[in-house]
Amino acid sequence: MKLPALNTPLRDLSEVDRREFFKAGGAVATVALSSGVTLMAFGGEASANADPGKRWGMLIDVNKCTSDCNACVTACSKENGWSAEEGSETDAQWIRKVDLTHKQTGREVSLPMMCQHCEDAPCVDVCPTEASFKRPDGIVLVDKHACIGCRFCMMACPYKARSFIHEPLTDQKSNAPRGQGTVESCTLCVHRVDAGGQPACVDACGTTGNGAMLFGDLNDPESDISKALKKFNSIGLRDDLRLNPGVRYSNL
């Protein structure tokens, strides 16, 4: 009996190449009618889920958020499989609660901080390998296949949103691959968004938290978040930098 050799020459290179050609561009949509017959439509929408017409964002009502509530952080940690030991300077934190006291008025507020998914993200600009990138729908991610671990994005981020993975990891969540020597941050739960859902933190804030977080498409004037943003005053953090973050805060 002859066993298949592991070094059998590539039998059908054209198959791979054809797929590359049709699917990689994004500007070409194809429909396979039957084997051997393919329809092509140039200039159409890609079949991919990240819609360039959308821009995902979040509105956080600081008045509703309380200092003692940690629901968003717990939910994110569970969903994406990270955990931060108290006082550890090296553990990753995708989302954190920040307590603030106004220096002049003494007003105390609490709010969640995570990647702000900027329109003009400094992390994307400074990344030498294009590992830091923005999806067509505005979600800023790290391509860990290309990340070399230089940490320039961490230096460039005005929000301290990114963490470097300082230790070897095992048993990651299948939706949130993460590993030693690369940089990571909030993904806006991109796997849930692609499936039509919303980020775990927003879900948790609505159920066990105080309902301070609203998620939606900033480009759709009919979405709840767009309506709320039109009605109420809100700010993006470090608006002086004009990065146009996708996460906005009201009553801050």
């Binding site: 797929r19 889920n49 990240a50």
Partner: peptide, 21 residues
Amino acid sequence: RINHKNLLKHDRDLTMRLGDR
């Protein structure tokens, strides 16, 4: 056996960069 790496690499970019699930 020969092409799994190319197929995986190709499709991972679609999923990760464009959100094609």
